[in-house]
């Protein structure tokens, strides 16, 4: 299947001279949930801005549904709904008016039944006649989502949708995102919360200092880059690690009750056998052992700080 969004060699240098993107290429498959992870200032919002037509690229091209987003901007933009990072609402308007406005702006004929459904899905229907300024921050964020969905987009961009949102609302947003995916909407979200990417995404891209450093299926990513920890619960606590056992990836933990050995699952040999042999030679016994797969967070921190 051809990608629904194809970003090719896109770069951005702001007027200040700051290079925000350095030749980014990225394909998004129709119907997937793609999470873009990256530290502050990595270029996530800039990249979204370029795809959606808010920021002018300095170089490269973007196609959306096969349409170039500059020369055929109408066709390209019609497909996209955008929920930006910053809360920006028409404070004096009512919820209903602002969501209907969004639909009209995208050239769609009025459809009160559809707007009603969107508002109900976002638990905003009760407040449809309220002025936006009377809503809470979380509600305002949902209003922005409703606005983005008002024209029935095939692609939804969510720039840090759950920043500053309570746990319950975050859950309900995840729910909503899944529901949208189920009806075929392609979703691109950025987040700082690794758990969010881990929970939601089909694929994960990591961006750092304006470069995509990695794009991978989530499961594959965890498998490929994952480090595992072997945790040995000792029969007798140790005061210190015997010098003959010392190695880079072995530490004494839990007040001398545990030995933690970190190893790479993709390595040729994990070194586990050697370690266990040395332990028995040194007369150290253990009563239990288990292994722990490292989380995406560990992978992410490793990528961004390491390279």
């Amino acid at each position: 299947m051809p990608p629904i969004i194809a970003v090719s060699n896109v770069s951005k240098t702001y007027a200040s001279g700051l290079v925000a993107l350095k030749g980014v290429s990225l394909d998004i498959a129709p119907g997937e949930i793609f999470a873009l992870l990256g530290p502050n200032g990595a270029g996530k919002t800039t990249l979204i801005g370029i795809i959606c037509g808010i920021v002018n690229a300095s170089g490269g091209t973007v196609t959306v549904g096969g349409h170039d987003n500059v020369t055929e901007y109408r066709a390209a933009r019609s497909l996209i709904g955008l929920v930006p990072q910053e809360l920006a609402t028409d404070t004096f308007e009512t919820v209903w008016a602002t969501v209907s406005f969004s639909r009209g702006l995208f050239g769609k004929s009025p459809n009160p039944a559809f707007i009603e459904q969107v508002l109900k899905d976002l638990s905003l229907y009760e407040r449809r006649h309220s002025k936006i300024m009377t809503l809470s921050g979380g509600m305002k964020r949902r209003v922005m989502i409703a606005k983005a969905l008002a024209h029935e987009p095939q692609i939804l961009f969510l720039d840090e949708p759950t920043a500053g949102v309570d746990v319950e609302l975050r859950r309900s947003m995840w729910e909503l995102i899944r529901k949208l995916r189920d009806v075929g909407v392609t979703i691109i979200l950025t987040t700082h919360y690794i758990e969010e990417a881990e929970e939601m995404a089909d694929r994960i891209g990591v961006i750092n200092k304006g470069e995509i450093v990695l794009v991978e299926e989530k499961a594959e990513l965890i498998r490929k880059l994952g480090q595992k920890q072997l945790i040995l619960d000792l029969a007798q606590p140790l005061a210190a690690l015997p010098p003959e056992l010392a190695r880079r990836n072995l530490v004494l933990a839990g007040d001398g009750q545990q030995l933690v050995y970190t190893y790479d699952t993709k390595g040729e040999h994990t070194g586990i056998t050697a370690l266990l042999n040395e332990l028995s030679a040194a007369g150290i016994r253990f009563k239990d052992l288990n292994t722990k797969q490292s989380s995406l967070e560990d992978i992410f921190v490793g990528l961004v700080s390491g390279k």
Binding site: C52, I54, R74, S78, A88, D90, L105, F106, G107, K147
Partner: peptide, 14 residues
């Protein structure tokens, strides 16, 4: 000023 211009700029409108 409000930042709501983002929506107009991202809409299929000239």
């Amino acid at each position: 000023f409000l930042g709501t211009i983002y929506e107009i700029l991202s809409a299929p409108i000239s």
